[in-house]
Amino acid sequence: MIRNIVGSVLALAGATAAVWSPFRAWYDGRHGRDYAIDELFTGITDAKAEVIGSILLPFAFAALLTLVGVLFRSRALVALAGIVVLGFTVLWMVRVGQAEGSLTVGGDGQGLGIGVANAFGGGVLLLLGAVVMSGRRGRRRTARVDQAPAPAPVPVADPDPADPYPADPYPVGPYPGGDAPTATYPTVDTPPPDQPYPPDHRPEDPQNR
Rank of each mutant, 00 (worst) to 15 (best):
A25R: 11
A119T: 05
D168G: 15
E39W: 14
D38I: 07
R139Y: 03
Y185V: 14
R136S: 08
E50S: 15
R144V: 13
P186N: 06
P191M: 01
G122A: 06
P171T: 10
T89F: 04
Q207D: 15
S102K: 04
L64K: 02
D108E: 09
D38T: 09
L57Q: 00
F72T: 12
G43Y: 03
S21I: 06
W20M: 12
V19Q: 08
A99S: 15
H31D: 01
E100P: 10
R33H: 10
G7S: 00
D160W: 08
L40C: 07
R30M: 10
S21G: 12
A63W: 07
G113F: 07
R30H: 09
I52F: 12
A18M: 00
A60I: 11
P174N: 12
I52M: 07
P206F: 07
V19D: 10
P169Q: 07
D189A: 12
P192T: 03
V172A: 15
P176L: 15
V188A: 00
R73F: 00
A150E: 11
G69L: 05
A180N: 13
P153H: 06
V154I: 13
A119I: 08
F23I: 01
L67V: 14
V154D: 05
I5V: 05
F23T: 04
I2N: 03
G111I: 06
D200I: 05
P161L: 11
D146F: 14
Y185S: 12
S21L: 10
L10I: 03
